[in-house]
């Protein structure tokens, strides 16, 4: 490999045709308000554990829509409910996290 003095970063393209969205579909069936997320990030900004594990319900939601593994974030949630209180769309975030913790296999 020739050293050009720079490297190419890994592609971050998400091919929505190829990702597994089954978990997201399952989730919105059980927690319909999950559809209402507009990615404002209020949940992550208030999150008690975001400083430790980067937890944010917004990231969890985008993550499962892209078929990523969000279990490290889910397993750190203490269910304190601050994200529920600040969510401008009224998403039941605690129920969302608990449901995901249940349906992940």
């Amino acid at each position: 490999m020739i050293d050009f003095g720079f490297t190419l970063s890994k592609s971050s393209t998400v091919d929505l045709n190829k990702v597994d969205r089954s978990r997201y579909d399952q989730l919105v069936k059980l927690v319909p308000t999950a559809r209402m997320c507009m990615n404002c990030g209020s949940c992550g900004a208030t999150c008690t554990v975001s400083e430790y594990k980067g937890m944010s319900v917004r990231k969890v939601l985008t993550g499962i829509q892209r078929g990523e593994d969000v279990r490290p974030m889910l397993s750190s949630c203490m269910l304190c409910g601050k994200c529920t209180m600040v969510c401008p769309r009224g998403i039941n975030t605690r129920n969302l996290v608990l449901t995901l913790c249940k349906i992940y296999d």
Partner: peptide, 11 residues
């Protein structure tokens, strides 16, 4: 209820 994702104390 059973949860498949375990909890890890983050702090």
């Amino acid at each position: 209820r059973d949860y498949t994702v375990p909890f890890n104390y983050p702090a």
